[in-house]
């Protein structure tokens, strides 16, 4: 690992994360062709495309979650702070602490609200109660959940609504103080009001300097929350640019068709 001063200075100008010719094969079958993208701090990048286009597959490469799937091979370079993490020797635990992930279905653990946030902190060696209390509060505030749950931190996370559970999952991720947060269709299981709350949360964590990458089916959502958008189609990354350009003046014919509802 490089020294920290170099890391912080490089985040201002350079992308916090970029991929170079990343490919994914499931048991020899290609799911994603060479994809090169870069993501900057404080921006929200949306990955859009029809089902099965490889956008979630790509997202799951970034924190090496695909390594948990038997038969999945990821090729190319995934560079996080000048370190290629797609190598055998990389410490996936170290990476996933810094590159957090929020899933499609809210998946809080069968624990109290407090323990859901504190679990990973404890796993990573934080033991002092004051430190834990402080970090839990800070994370819940960052996920805009604190005011709703501060009086019932010891209640089961399952007593929360779906949207609150999803914000709890965001809080749980933020607790580890990542600088990249990956979100895999975080609102697809939620109603419009809960979706709105999550989108607010996404914007606010991006304002705090975190790089957010979000997979979404909902194109209005992409226009609302993202600065950049990448369009995936049949395992190819087709077009990448500013969100306004992607939706306002698409260059590729397939993207144009997709936006006009001709397929997908």
């Amino acid at each position: 690992m490089t020294d920290t001063t170099k890391l912080t200075s490089s985040t201002v100008q350079n992308p916090v994360l970029h991929t170079h010719d990343v490919t994914v094969d499931y048991s020899g079958k290609r799911a994603l062709n060479e994809t090169s993208l870069s993501f900057e701090s404080g921006t929200v990048t949306a990955l859009i495309g029809p089902s099965g286009c490889g956008k979630s597959t790509f997202l799951r490469c970034i924190n090496l979650m695909n390594r948990e799937i038997p038969g999945c091979v990821v090729g190319g370079k995934i560079v996080y702070h000048d370190i290629n993490v797609n190598t055998k020797g990389i410490d996936t635990l170290w990476l996933r602490k810094r590159v957090g992930m929020v899933f499609q279905q809210p998946n809080p653990f069968r624990k109290s609200i407090y323990e859901n946030v504190a679990f990973a902190l404890k796993s990573h060696g934080m033991t002092k109660k004051e430190e834990l209390d402080e970090r839990v509060e800070k994370s819940l505030r960052a996920a805009a959940l604190w005011d709703e749950v501060k009086d019932k931190l010891r209640d089961s996370a399952y007593a929360l609504s779906g949207g609150q559970q999803q914000r709890l999952c965001i809080a749980r991720t933020l607790a580890l103080q990542p600088d990249v947060v990956l979100m895999d269709e975080p609102c697809s299981a939620l109603d419009p009001i809960a979706t709105f709350a999550i989108e607010e949360t996404i914007s606010s964590i991006a304002r705090n300097g975190i790089c957010v990458v979000i997979v979404t089916h909902n194109m209005e959502q992409a226009t609302r929350v993202s600065n950049k958008t990448a369009f995936f189609y049949l395992g190819h990354m087709v077009e990448f640019g500013d969100t306004a350009q992607i939706f306002g003046a698409p260059k590729d014919q397939r993207l144009n068709d997709y936006l006009n509802g001709r397929f997908g």
Partner: peptide, 24 residues
Amino acid sequence: SYRDGSYGLGCTRWQTIVGVVLPS
């Protein structure tokens, strides 16, 4: 999804089993 959640937070397999899977 519980296991994914735990792995996604950088927890080891053992931490996932003891802290998430067994209690559930």
